[in-house]
Design a protein around this nucleic acid. Sequence first.
DNA 1: CCCCAAATGTAATCGTCGATTACATAAAGA
DNA 2: TCTTTATGTAATCGACGATTACATTTGGGG
Lengths: 217, 217
Amino acid sequence: MSASPTSKPRARRQTLEARPYHHGDLRRVLIDAALQLAAEGADVSVREAARRAAVSPGAPFRHFPNRDALMAAAAEEAQRRFRTEIEAALGDAPAADPLLRFRAFGLAYLRWAMRNPAHFEIISTGRYFAHGSSVELTRDNAELIALTEQMLADAAAQGLLRSADLKPIQIAGRALVYGFARMNLDGHFPRWGVEEGEIERMAEEVIDLFIAGIAKR
Amino acid sequence: MSASPTSKPRARRQTLEARPYHHGDLRRVLIDAALQLAAEGADVSVREAARRAAVSPGAPFRHFPNRDALMAAAAEEAQRRFRTEIEAALGDAPAADPLLRFRAFGLAYLRWAMRNPAHFEIISTGRYFAHGSSVELTRDNAELIALTEQMLADAAAQGLLRSADLKPIQIAGRALVYGFARMNLDGHFPRWGVEEGEIERMAEEVIDLFIAGIAKR
DNA sequence: CCCCAAATGTAATCGTCGATTACATAAAGA
DNA sequence: TCTTTATGTAATCGACGATTACATTTGGGG
């Protein structure tokens, strides 16, 4: 009965193609649309996200004060996925050897960045929104950094490192993986992608080279 | 006589405030305006560049088919300056020691990137124009890379390196400086800029750490 | 010297975007 | 049920990239 085309507009939610006036969870759908657009390589516009959510161009601004806020929310979601994968990799790594854990961290970092370049870009580049505007993003990132600092401190405590000055090691390590990820992102690895896994293999070599460079031997 | 306000419009070029219909070298002025806008942290728009050149919004398109072409031309100019500084630094470096030359290269690279972040971004990021669209930029960059490869090959020939596998060393070195430059650019060095030279000192430490890691000892 | 063609600038216009405002509709609670 | 609040729509604005038709200047061949 409710499927009758002549029924009054109330209870219209039952018919599949007629979306109810209120969207289920527009905020979430907009974030997903933004991430999807980025992953497709398209430039992310609020209007296009609204279009994908089948909603008017002004609707997103009920949930985000401006475009940057949408991008920041998308970045937070991407960062959450990133962090989840990193922590899974660390869960599989041996607890005893800090340098192996360091290696596992770097590998997981680069693997994710290689496979989700656009999301990595949103997280890292600070161009889509003011860099300190998302406290969650900042805190999350700080925690990951603290993780690597702890691993390096453990390694030093076990006498595994050649130098006791941890700060340059920490910075260099971050710069190395960050730079590798961004080189891939910015198109500085011209034709490697043709053979699948070539870049990830090179990432592994580079990480091992770095660890060999800082390790005592 | 020519200053008379009733004089005919011809020979108007004499009066300073009345620009002649034809701009002197609009193409060059637009490139400079684009670089200046980038350096100021503003987003570069064709219209704003035209405004700074005191010219109509459509005029730039007589010299560049689209915005990306203007950005590419600006990138070429920035890359020219970048390369000039690198080569000057290499000119001052000792010709005999390839690792010292490598170090000088890295230092000059990072110094320039720290002091001209927006220009470095335009050069490197491939977001402002298709990455292979400028043959000059591509060639120029390839030559700089070839320079570092030569330095590493020389170092290996002199038995200065711990490993004979140069490719990972080359990639890691690029990733390291590129990552350091981009971390600075993307706001990942929170409050270091307050004390002038702090970042550049850290850059030096990081480069030395890398060289110590690859050198035989 | 003049005229014409090429180069180069202007004016007007289009479609897209971010953003704001006034209004409409649904949901929730007293 | 009535009213408040949340959430969507419609209309509009200004900036932007881009295109088109037109205007002005310049420079070279008769």
